Simulated scan of single mutants.
Amino acid sequence: MSITPEQRIQLHGFNNLTKSLSFNMYDICFTKTKEDREAYIEYIDEQYNADRLTNILKNVSDIIGAHVLNVAKQDYVPQGASVTVLVSEGPVVEVPTEHFEESPGPLPDSVVIQLDKSHITVHTYPEYHPYEGISTFRADIDVVTCGEISPLKALNYLINSFDTDIMSIDYRVRGFTRDVNGHKLFIDHDISSIQNYIPDDIKELYDMIDVNVYQDNIFHTKCKLKNFDLDDYLFNLNKSQLSEEEKAEITRKLRREMDEIFYAKNMNVDP
């Protein structure tokens, strides 16, 4: 629903609210040999190198209506990459038309959005278990805006930019701004759950849990992929090459890894 000029709250000066979206994703696979594990790391570093990550963050900037001021990027040795993009005010070329249960924040009447003191970052962390054959790729993306537009507008794009088995998503509105009478505003849009900004076809793929602290404008949603096809989790291997016992054991290890990440705790480990 659009907001008419009569419905908009008149602020005293700049909107000082800081809106932070932290998107944490995991890709999990089984790598049978040490050579496979090293090849997986090499594959991830190639797929998600600093140049590709930079393009993803620039697209995020376009989606939220920001202007890129500066880009710092780095591929690391032995593995991983980081990109930081500083953004400022910029024109909104097109407002996304996806239907959500809640608005991702008030939209401006003019084509210029104040997004000073804002940034978008990504860091990647490929790694593997020392002896069980489990390899994981983690990416942490933070979108922080100061002004009217919420980074939640970019959430759908981010989900579709990564091959994601587990997601942990945090959204928080910090600080306050004032209306023309000096009254403090600690949030400038309605929100009850991050899930309301995720399209239904995506939500159907995941089991989801919310942990929200409404009085502090803190929202958390974690997601685990529902369907499990072993072939989707094997690197340089397919299940037709495995015995029934091997398939059962690898499946157990993969599911335990996913559960441990989803619930953020170690499960029982065989001695």
Rank of each mutant, 00 (worst) to 15 (best):
residue 95 V to H: 14
residue 169 I to K: 01
residue 182 G to P: 12
residue 258 M to P: 00
residue 124 T to H: 07
residue 162 F to W: 05
residue 75 D to P: 09
residue 211 V to E: 14
residue 102 E to F: 04
residue 191 I to R: 01
residue 112 V to D: 14
residue 212 N to M: 02
residue 88 S to I: 10
residue 67 H to V: 02
residue 55 N to S: 15
residue 189 H to D: 14
residue 23 F to L: 07
residue 210 D to C: 11
residue 41 I to K: 07
residue 215 Q to S: 15
residue 124 T to S: 15
residue 234 L to H: 07
residue 137 F to C: 00
residue 47 Q to V: 10
residue 257 E to N: 09
residue 98 E to W: 05
residue 27 D to F: 01
residue 8 R to E: 15
residue 252 R to A: 15
residue 269 V to K: 15
residue 100 F to A: 01
residue 236 N to L: 01
residue 183 H to V: 14
residue 157 Y to I: 05
residue 160 N to G: 09
residue 64 I to E: 08
residue 29 C to V: 04
residue 173 V to M: 14
residue 157 Y to W: 12
residue 21 L to T: 00
residue 183 H to C: 08
residue 242 L to G: 06
residue 7 Q to A: 12
residue 264 A to E: 15
residue 91 P to N: 13
residue 3 I to E: 10
residue 134 I to P: 04
residue 239 K to M: 12
residue 194 I to C: 06
residue 198 I to P: 04
residue 108 P to D: 05
residue 190 D to G: 05
residue 104 P to R: 04
residue 235 F to V: 06
residue 68 V to L: 08
residue 190 D to T: 13
residue 154 A to I: 08
residue 95 V to N: 12
residue 117 K to P: 02
residue 226 K to E: 12
residue 8 R to H: 10
residue 239 K to V: 06
residue 18 T to P: 03
residue 227 N to E: 15
residue 161 S to W: 01
residue 213 V to L: 13
residue 74 Q to N: 11
residue 214 Y to R: 08
residue 140 D to K: 05
residue 231 D to H: 02
residue 156 N to S: 07
residue 203 K to S: 11
residue 167 M to Y: 08
residue 124 T to Q: 09
residue 184 K to A: 12
residue 187 I to T: 13
residue 57 L to H: 06
residue 31 T to I: 03
residue 111 V to R: 11
residue 77 V to Y: 11
residue 119 H to D: 13
residue 78 P to C: 11
residue 241 Q to P: 02
residue 81 A to W: 05
residue 47 Q to W: 03
residue 158 L to Q: 04
residue 205 L to V: 13
residue 81 A to S: 15
residue 166 I to M: 05
residue 255 R to D: 12
residue 190 D to V: 13
residue 197 Y to R: 13
residue 59 N to R: 12
residue 38 E to R: 05
residue 46 E to R: 07
residue 205 L to E: 15
residue 84 T to I: 14
residue 197 Y to T: 09
residue 102 E to H: 04
residue 23 F to W: 08
residue 203 K to V: 08
residue 170 D to F: 11
residue 177 T to R: 10
residue 48 Y to N: 03
residue 144 V to L: 12
residue 105 G to V: 02
residue 203 K to T: 11
residue 259 D to S: 04
residue 132 E to W: 04
residue 202 I to N: 08
residue 181 N to R: 10
residue 194 I to S: 06
residue 255 R to Q: 15
residue 219 F to I: 06
residue 81 A to T: 12
residue 48 Y to D: 00
residue 153 K to C: 08
residue 212 N to W: 01
residue 11 L to S: 01
residue 243 S to T: 15
residue 165 D to G: 00
residue 139 A to H: 07
residue 73 K to A: 12
residue 133 G to A: 07
residue 263 Y to H: 14
residue 166 I to P: 04
residue 157 Y to L: 09
residue 192 S to E: 08
residue 251 T to A: 09
residue 218 I to F: 13
residue 263 Y to N: 09
residue 44 I to A: 00
residue 148 E to S: 14
residue 118 S to Q: 10
residue 261 I to G: 00
residue 93 V to P: 00
residue 158 L to S: 05
residue 81 A to R: 06
residue 77 V to N: 14
residue 72 A to M: 14
residue 16 N to A: 13
